[in-house]
Simulated assay, not measured.
Amino acid sequence: MRRREGKTKLQFLQELKNIPPQVHNRWLILGDFNLIYQAEDKNNSNLNRCLMGAFRATIDHLRLKEIKLNGCRFTWSNQQDNPTLTIIDRLLCTTEWDLLFPMCFLHSLPSLMSDHTPLLLQGELDHHHSTSFHFKNY
């Protein structure tokens, strides 16, 4: 079962790598990736370093950066007495997207119904208005 799950995750990562470059490279990808890319993303040492490396390589290949979560450390729990906690829900963006939305923040919301933490993305467009005055004589 684990081998098939790992193969499926590697196929998913390849699909992400195959996303064609866009004319305007401003995009954001978000969701439950069900993957981690660093040991700090999990509260125990049961790690699949091969999948972690593949996820990190995909993020690097697409030149994405993570919008960091405010409010809680982990986004998923198996809800056991001694729980496994991970960050598997993520928002990743291009530098161009980040430049368009520099005042963007990711917050956690409370939930009693889900094993995932609901996430709220808030931000504003960075409007660059010219402050120079131009007088034209007609």
Rank of each mutant, 00 (worst) to 15 (best):
Q122K: 14
M52T: 03
E40D: 09
L13N: 00
L30G: 13
Q79Y: 06
T95H: 14
L62C: 09
T86G: 05
D126K: 15
P102Y: 09
M52A: 02
N18V: 00
L109A: 03
R63P: 04
L121M: 04
R3A: 11
T8Q: 15
F133R: 07
M113R: 06
Q80S: 12
L28N: 00
R4Y: 03
E15S: 14
L47Q: 03
K65D: 12
N43C: 01
R63K: 13
N18T: 00
F55M: 15
H24C: 11
T117Q: 13
N78M: 13
S114H: 11
R73D: 05
F101W: 04
H128E: 10
F33G: 08
N46V: 07
L100M: 14
L64A: 04
I67W: 02
E124L: 13
H61G: 06
R49S: 04
L47K: 03
Q38F: 03
N48D: 10
I88K: 11
T8L: 15
I87T: 15
L51D: 02
L125W: 14
P83H: 06
E5S: 07
T75E: 06
Q22A: 14
M52E: 01
T117E: 07
L112F: 03
Y37W: 15
N46I: 06
L106W: 00
L35D: 00
M103H: 14
N25A: 12
H129A: 09
L85M: 12
D41F: 02
M52D: 00
C93P: 04
L13K: 00
G53V: 01
M103I: 11
N82P: 07
D89I: 05
M103N: 15
F74C: 08
M113Q: 08
S114C: 11
T84C: 13
L51N: 04
W97I: 10
G71L: 09
F105V: 09
G6M: 13
H107Y: 11
Q122R: 12
T58V: 12
Q122H: 05
Q38G: 01
M1E: 01
P110A: 06
F12N: 08
V23Y: 13
E66R: 11
L121T: 02
F101E: 00
E5G: 02
